[in-house]
Simulated assay, not measured.
Amino acid sequence: MDTLAPRTAARTRKPRLSLWTLRFLLTGHLVAVLAQPVLAGRYLTGDVDAITVHGLVGSLMSLVAMALVAGAVAYVLGGRGQLWVLPVTVLLFLAEGLQIGMGHSRALQVHVPLGVAIVVAAVLLAAWVWTPAAARPRGVR
């Protein structure tokens, strides 16, 4: 009687709650990141109040990025998710901190290209987190 064999096979633990948390955080972060060039563009076209909102959204983004690091820790450690997600989210958090500093010091030669890099990283992370690869536990291909 081999009918019990499939039931006794070891099940791999997949990231579930931690993955949904990461998806929520990365998607919200992406919305804020994509708002930044729009707000900067509005400022450059004459809407002087847009720079205040740009700064506020940037500061709030750093809080979201901090939560994103915590979500990545839960995804990697608790959900057995992909290891590379944690250092990437930490680098993104640090880049956003540098971005805020460069913006306040008006160092646009760093602020603008770093902003582009942050947008690209946020888009790629947010797109990846919705793929089936993000749901696979570590070590499964």
Rank of each mutant, 00 (worst) to 15 (best):
A50W: 07
W130N: 09
V112E: 11
P132A: 09
W130G: 00
H54T: 08
V53E: 10
L56M: 13
L30P: 05
G101S: 09
A72H: 04
R80C: 00
A5L: 12
T131S: 14
D49A: 14
E96A: 10
V76Q: 11
R138I: 06
G28Y: 01
G28I: 02
P15A: 03
Y43F: 15
A127K: 10
V119Q: 11
T131F: 00
V90G: 06
G115P: 05
T89I: 02
L17I: 13
I100D: 03
M61H: 10
G55K: 09
H104D: 09
P137Y: 02
A10R: 15
I51L: 12
L22D: 04
L56P: 00
W84I: 11
A126F: 02
A107Q: 14
L68N: 11
P87H: 01
V69A: 02
P15L: 05
L98W: 11
F24H: 05
K14E: 12
A134V: 04
Q99N: 10
T12W: 09
L60W: 14
P87D: 01
T27Q: 09
L114N: 07
A40D: 03
L34P: 01
A67N: 06
W128Y: 08
L63W: 14
V140H: 06
M1T: 11
R42L: 15
A70K: 00
V112K: 11
V110T: 12
G103I: 01
G46R: 06
R11K: 14
V119D: 04
A121F: 01
Q99Y: 07
E96G: 14
A40Y: 09
G81H: 02
L125W: 05
W84A: 13
Q99G: 12
L125H: 05
M61K: 08
I51T: 10
A35I: 00
F24G: 14
A133G: 04
G81P: 06
S59W: 10
T45R: 15
T12Q: 12
S105P: 00
G58N: 04
V85L: 13
L68I: 03
A5R: 13
L63P: 05
P132E: 07
L44G: 10
L19R: 02
L68C: 08
K14D: 06
A107R: 12
L4K: 04
G139S: 08
P132M: 06
L91P: 02
L125Q: 13
R23C: 07
A134S: 14
L125M: 15
L83M: 12
I51Q: 08
G81N: 05
L124S: 10
G81R: 07
I118L: 10
S62D: 10
L83W: 15
V140G: 07
R80D: 09
R7L: 15
A72C: 02
V38I: 15
Q109L: 08
A107C: 00
T21K: 03
Q99T: 07
I51Y: 08
